[in-house]
Computed example of a mutant assay.
Amino acid sequence: MLNKFKEWYRQNINDRKEQRINEALEFKNRIVEISGMKYFLGKGSMTDLPDIVKVDQAAYGSKVKWGPKRFKSGLKNQNDRFYLILRHADELVGFICIVISRKKSCCHIENLAIMPGFQKRGLGYFLVTTIIERAREMDLRRVVFTCRKSNDRSQSLVRDLGFVLVEEEPNYYDDGEAAVNYQLHLDQRNYLAASNFGR
């Protein structure tokens, strides 16, 4: 009898967690204000593909992480991938891509890019903190962030938010550069300072 109750309880918990994840994936588009400017915040779709590629190339130049095929595959897979985009005056100026691992109870930020003319205005900070709160809503245990070892700006941003460096992966990128993985445990509340919005 006790074993049946344990099984029922575990299944009930898993069902509720799956429901929270599905609800969080149903992101409602809205207008947001960041550092005094208004932006459209929405869930990325296939129609955003050309603009996402354009932002990625503008932000990283020859060091782009992915090609159009990878972005297309991610935008098609709505079950465990999630793109958030920011538009200003109909121009896509930033995006963030996450992958959800239900088994590991983890949200992995795979890509974050901001148009050069919109950097240092708090957009990256806003997108990362939005994902952290979304991961909490999903009842996930941690958020992982991956970027190039040379990407000092992104590393500084996530460290300010409480992420800790956990590993370095040599030769991760096509050009041989290493990647660094940062991790944020969500079991402790991290209060996010508005003063960092200038990053």
Rank of each mutant, 00 (worst) to 15 (best):
L112E: 03
F5S: 08
F27P: 01
A113P: 02
R10E: 12
G122I: 06
G124N: 04
A58S: 13
G94Y: 00
S156G: 14
H88L: 05
F95K: 01
R10H: 10
I21S: 01
N151Y: 06
G36N: 10
F197C: 05
T130A: 09
K149Q: 07
K72H: 14
C107H: 04
E23H: 06
S156Y: 15
Y173N: 02
Y9L: 13
Y9D: 13
R159L: 11
L75T: 03
R199T: 10
S62E: 14
Y125D: 02
R134W: 07
A179D: 04
R136H: 06
K120P: 02
V99A: 14
L157S: 03
C106V: 13
L86R: 01
V99T: 11
I100L: 09
K104D: 09
Q183A: 07
D15A: 08
G42H: 03
V128W: 02
A89Q: 08
I109F: 03
E169G: 04
A194N: 07
M46W: 06
E168W: 04
Q78F: 08
G42D: 05
M37I: 12
H185G: 12
F145L: 05
E167L: 11
G122Y: 03
Y191G: 03
K43I: 04
E133L: 09
N151A: 11
Q78V: 10
V55I: 06
A194Y: 06
S35C: 13
V166C: 11
R134Q: 13
D80Y: 12
D80W: 11
K17Y: 03
Q119V: 10
F95N: 01
G122V: 05
L75W: 03
T129W: 06
A179E: 05
G42K: 04
I21D: 00
K72G: 06
R70K: 15
Y125G: 04
Q78K: 11
Y173F: 13
G198T: 12
G122A: 08
L92K: 00
L127Q: 00
C97D: 04
K103S: 14
Y172F: 14
R199Q: 15
L140W: 00
V158S: 04
Y182N: 09
I34N: 03
M37Q: 11
A193R: 06
P170C: 02
F71S: 01
P170L: 02
Q155P: 04
N22R: 11
I131K: 03
